[in-house]
Amino acid sequence: AAGIGLLVGMNCPKAVKPRDVITGISGRSQILFLVTYVARYLDLLTNFVSVYNTAMKVFFIAASAATVYLMLFKFKATYDHNHDTLRVEFLIAPCALLALVVNHDFTPLEILWTFSIYLESVAILPQLFMVSKTGEAETITSHYLFALGSYRALYILNWIYRYYFDNFFDLIAIVAGVVQTVLYCDFFYLYITKVLKGKKIVLPA
């Protein structure tokens, strides 16, 4: 929530330097995250868990839609699309196929939930590809990515807790969550060794 809030806040018109954020952020990853949240939280209409759960779902969808809107429409001119070129159909198609084959239940909502879990695990790839192409990441972009990666990494601790104390596990969520966290590892390393020491991420040529 902090990460996505940071992203929306810094991209807002009144922010000090919105350009710094927009140029470093992959619009393709942001669209994938929006698709992820919409596909997963369709159960807003059918399944009530808690006020917190509902509020966070609405927040994730709204903030993610706002980010996509700001990037692709309002601040279209500053969006660095030349470096944002990873083909997202190569991510979406395998996730859709896998969701049709490996799921808990062959129903529309369940398949969309499963698709969202698989898609989220790889949704950061256009962003990482963009950082590798430009060879650097603004510090504010780095904070955002770290918050986004921590969100799933912290769930791994939660899943271990639930396995032992709640007698519950969801293998699809666990495997996808571990894959997702592994994809962030290289970035986590750069974040800890550079950004936390006051330097911005610059990759060797």
Partner: peptide
């Protein structure tokens, strides 16, 4: 252990 479709996580 029960597993499956209790989607109460975000």
């Amino acid at each position: 252990h029960q597993h499956g479709t209790r989607h109460d996580e975000l």
